[in-house]
Amino acid sequence: MTAIAIPRKRVLADYVPAVVGVPAWVGTRVRDVLLIAAGAGFIGLLAQWSIPLPGTPVPLTLGTFAVLLTGASLGGVRGLLSVGTYLVAGGLGVNWFANHKDGWGGATFGYVIGFVLAGALVGWLAQRGGDRTVLRTAITMVLGNLVIYSVGVSWLMNSTGMDLRAGLAAGMTPFLIGDAIKIAAAAGLLPAAWSLVKRVDKH
């Protein structure tokens, strides 16, 4: 069976040591599985910080922020698998979607699908230096948010019968200020984390 090759030290997760006491390739795979599971748990945890908003079924949540940080930290493959684990586990009954919800479908499920695509995209960009500077990180996070909105708003419109104007008003406009704050936070956190790990790696 051909293993998926994950570039070394191209994202922050590559600096996490492999599990010791086993063959190197096994230790690396175990480390990756643990990172994928931890990323899914991180998203599920932050998604519980959720505030219902009037006039829309879409809550204000930190889930988006967690997805983008997870994707950037893990890279494209692990980011895809981590957010995919969050989606599948939630669909099968783990109540870690926003507002402690679970299951397939619903007006907001498109955002969870968008999470998976955004996690993979942001991770792919991070592997190419998209999280190394403030400007690059901001651009990476904006692109990830656009993917989430594209899928989430389209699903919302299809589920509720809203037209484009109503869909944007319910599924995107109320969250733009919050997303700008989250992007600014990520643009500070990720380059700072890179600065720290590079400093430690030199010693």
Rank of each mutant, 00 (worst) to 15 (best):
L53F: 09
D102W: 15
P52R: 00
P57K: 13
G114H: 01
W104A: 02
A98Y: 00
Q48P: 05
S73E: 01
V58W: 02
F97Y: 14
T64R: 04
G106Q: 06
V58H: 10
F42H: 05
D102M: 13
A98R: 02
A107D: 12
V77P: 03
G71E: 02
G71Q: 03
G105C: 11
H100L: 12
V67A: 01
N95M: 13
V83W: 12
F97G: 04
T56H: 11
V88C: 06
G91V: 05
V77I: 14
D102R: 15
D102Q: 15
G55M: 07
L81H: 02
L62E: 04
S73I: 15
G71N: 00
L74C: 07
A47P: 09
F115D: 04
S73M: 14
Y111E: 00
L46Y: 08
A107R: 05
G75Y: 02
S50R: 04
W49R: 03
K101S: 13
F115Y: 13
F97H: 01
S50P: 00
G103P: 08
I51P: 08
G76V: 06
L68E: 11
A89N: 01
G76W: 14
V77T: 14
L69W: 11
G90N: 10
V112Y: 14
Y111A: 11
T85Y: 01
W49E: 05
L45Q: 05
G75K: 07
L60A: 12
A89M: 15
V94P: 12
L80G: 10
S50D: 00
G76F: 12
P52Q: 06
S73F: 14
L80W: 12
W104T: 07
G44L: 13
L117Q: 05
Q48H: 08
S82L: 10
V116Q: 09
Y86T: 07
T64S: 15
L92A: 14
T56S: 03
L80C: 09
Y111Q: 05
G105Y: 00
L46A: 02
T70K: 07
L81G: 00
D102I: 08
G105V: 08
V77N: 10
P59G: 12
G91S: 11
V116I: 02
G110N: 04
L62S: 03
K101T: 14
A47I: 04
S82K: 11
G55N: 01
T61W: 13
G44T: 13
G63T: 04
G93H: 03
P52D: 04
G91C: 01
V112L: 15
T70D: 14
F42D: 09
A98L: 00
T85G: 15
A66Q: 07
V116L: 10
Q48R: 13
G76M: 10
G105I: 02
Q48G: 03
P52K: 10
F42Y: 12
R78D: 09
P52T: 09
L60V: 06
G114L: 04
P54C: 10
G90V: 08
V67K: 03
F115K: 08
G91E: 00
G84W: 10
F42G: 10
G110C: 08
L68N: 08
G114E: 05
V58M: 06
N95W: 11
F115T: 11
V88F: 05
A66F: 04
T56V: 03
V77L: 13
F42K: 04
F42I: 09
I43G: 11
G41A: 15
L60R: 09
G91F: 00
L80T: 03
H100Q: 14
T108M: 07
P59I: 12
L80P: 07
L53C: 14
G90P: 08
F115E: 01
